[in-house]
Simulated assay, not measured.
Amino acid sequence: MNRTESRTQSRQVKERQVDRAARACTPEFLDRYVRPHLGANAPATGGTWTTKVIQLDGTGAATVQVELDGGAPVFAKLFPFDDGPAVHAKLQALRTAGLGAGSAYQAVEPLAWYGEEKVLLCQGAPGRPLSELLGGNGEDLTRACARAGSWLARLHGSELRVGSPQSLLVTGELTSLAKRLAKVAVDHPGYVDSALGMLERLDALTRDTTDGVLAQSHGQYRPIHVFLTEDVVTVIDLDRSAPADPARDVAEFLHRLRLGVHSATGDVGRADRPCAAFLDAYRGALGDMPLRNLRFHWARYILHSLNRKIKTGEADWKDGGNAEFQLYRDEFQRVADGRAGA
C-alpha cells in the first residue's frame, strides 16, 4: 500500500467512525446497550441522556462518554477493526490478576462487549485525572506521582502476560521516529544538522540497551490516563497493554509529565520532585532492573516530540533556537547525560 492509498483508507475509516459515534449518541442505541449496565438505581425507562464524543482521531477506537440523569459515566469504545474482544479479555485478565475490585491499584472495569456493534462498555474511572494536577499544588502532584509510580510497578511486577510480546525494536519505535523526521526534513532542511546531532546521541544510547527485558506494560502510560481518589488509583486506556520493555511506560509518563507541567506553569523545573517521587516509588517496588533502557526510551520520546513541534512551527532551531526548541534540546541533553534520574 502506498502513501496515497494509506491516506484514503484512513479517511474512510474515520468517516465510518464519525457515523458510528453519532449513532452511539442516539436514545435507541443507549437504551439497548448502555442502560442495562447502569445499576439498580438507574431508571428502567426515561431519563435524560448526556453524551460527549471525547476521542475520534481515526487511528483507533472512537470513545463516547455517556451519562443518564447526571449519574456515573460509562464509556462506549467503538472499535473500527477486530481487536475489541482481545481488549475486553485483557481488561478482565488484568483485574483478575490483582488490578480489580478491592485493590488500591486498579485497571478500568469493563462492563460488556457487544460484537454486533464492535463496542466495549467501560465504567468511568472514579476520581480525577492526574493531569488536572500539573499546574497546581506541587505537594499534591508529588504525592499523586508517587502513587502513579506504585501503580505501574504493580502492573510491571505482575506475572500476567497477555497480548503479543514486543521486542525492543518495536518498543523503541525507531521506524516511527525515522518517518516523522524524514517528513520534517523535507519541509525544514535547515533543521537536519540539529536533528543529526541528537540522533548521534541517541545512537550512542542504543549501545547500552539490553534486549529481552519484558513485563506486562501499559502501552500509553500518561498522566491523563491515571485517576485518583483518596484510596484508589485507577488507570484507563489499556488497549495496547502487552509484554514489552517496561522502561517505555516509565519514559512516556515522565516525558509527558514534564512537558505538561511546563505547559501549565511555564517552569519545567517544577516537575523535578514529582518525577523523583514517581521513580522512587517505582524503584522501591521493583528495583533498577526494569529501567535498564530508560535513558534510550526517554531521549527517543523527546526527539520524536521535538520533530512534531518543528513540523507545526512551534519550535524553531534557527539562530540558536526559540524557547520551545531550547526546552526540548535541554530536556534531551539532560536525559542523555544521565542527569534525569534515569
Rank of each mutant, 00 (worst) to 15 (best):
A182L: 11
V184Q: 03
A185Y: 02
D187A: 15
D187C: 10
P189G: 01
P189V: 02
P189A: 07
G190A: 06
Y191F: 13
Y191I: 08
V192C: 05
D193T: 14
S194D: 12
A195N: 00
L196D: 09
L196R: 13
G197E: 07
E200W: 07
E200I: 06
D203I: 08
D203K: 12
A204L: 09
R207A: 15
D208A: 14
D208S: 15
T209S: 09
T209Q: 01
T209L: 02
D211L: 15
G212M: 04
G212T: 05
G212L: 08
L214F: 14
Q216I: 07
Q216R: 04
S217Y: 01
H218A: 05
Q220K: 13
P223L: 04
F227V: 04
F227H: 10
F227A: 02
T229A: 05
V233H: 00
V233N: 02
D237S: 09
L238N: 01
L238T: 03
L238K: 03
D239M: 06
D239A: 13
R240C: 14
A242P: 03
A242W: 03
D245Y: 01
D245I: 03
P246Y: 04
D249Y: 03
D249E: 06
E252N: 12
F253P: 02
L254V: 12
L254N: 02
H255V: 09
H255Q: 14
G260D: 04
V261H: 02
H262A: 14
S263E: 15
D267K: 13
D267P: 05
D267T: 11
V268Y: 10
G269H: 14
G269Y: 11
R270C: 07
A271P: 07
D272H: 12
R273Y: 02
P274M: 09
C275I: 06
A276L: 11
A277I: 05
F278Q: 02
F278G: 00
